[in-house]
Design a protein around this nucleic acid. Structure first.
Lengths: 148, 148
DNA sequence: TGAAACAGGACTGATATAGTACTATTTAAC
DNA sequence: GTTAAATAGTACTATATCAGTCCTGTTTCA
């Protein structure tokens, strides 16, 4: 169903929560409680988010996590990439040898193009926007025509 | 990584192949050979595609499958939906009770909005386009700003 | 009547995801 | 210095999904 994983969904929740207390250092425990998630799960996410430098960690007593950038500067795409890796729709012809028309298989380049469009869409949605209610449907993200 | 399943990838291959012989009835066996896929796999896909009325099936000797609509009228979104079900990014608050801020949880509506945008993007890409090489990157699918 | 082909469902194995646990390291406070 | 709080890293397990296969039944043409 073309969906992101539960963990990524959680990660957005955690990031939104964290970025609403920007500058403040918050422990994984506190975040878990605020988000209604399990501590081990939240810890796992925060480790990944730290590696991608979306959050900064502080060890020791009174340690925790903090976002540095304002939430309007952090895109959903960044969070997805931190948890799931690069956004791509298919491995398509990665494991080829299958497709007999390999040479004139145009699917691959088209999939890449679609992936790019989706990635761009995600890049334009910030955590600040995720924290607010979505505007009316008529204001939805719009996709320009695919045709050149 | 936000990807469609292998089966959906295969389904696009099969549909592109089928729609290049529009009007002609082609057996699952023949399609499997042309696409370099296993017969059982292709059969499975064709059954799903038939249920979604993307293709028409004919039983008995000399039976097979056929697309009725021209490839320019069939979108990638339709094929994805036939195999994977509706396009949606998250179940988000489907299994809630987790999120303590349920009432003012704005994530859900935003995810729906993003899903809608992605679905629209897929709706604009036709099988005819998938069969051709992708235009230059500068002509990529573009997503208009998320902001109202 | 027999063979070709699809329909439907069930089953199995592989892979990915989700969740958990354990050990090590860091840091502040007393 | 010792202790407790907290993150870092890694490994493990269970579950769910996905991919692939197979079997039985039905339809249709020759």
């Amino acid at each position: 169903m073309l969906r992101i994983s539960k963990l990524t969904d959680y990660a957005i929740m955690v990031m939104v929560e964290l970025s609403q207390s920007r500058g403040e250092v918050i422990s994984a425990q506190a975040l878990a409680e605020r988000c209604g998630l399990e501590l081990p799960t939240v810890s796992k996410l925060l480790k990944l988010l730290t590696r991608s430098e979306l959050v900064q960690s502080f060890r020791g007593v009174n340690g925790g996590y903090r976002v540095n950038r304002p939430s309007a500067d952090i895109s959903v795409a960044e969070v997805i990439a931190a948890i799931e890796g690069p956004i791509a729709m298919t491995e398509c012809s990665v494991d080829t040898g299958l497709c007999q028309q390999e040479d004139n298989c145009n699917l691959r380049s088209n999939w890449q193009r679609i992936s790019l469009a989706v990635a761009e869409a995600m890049q334009q949605v910030t955590l600040a926007e995720m924290a607010r209610p979505a505007p009316a449907v008529t204001d939805s993200l719009k996709i320009a025509t695919f045709n050149a």
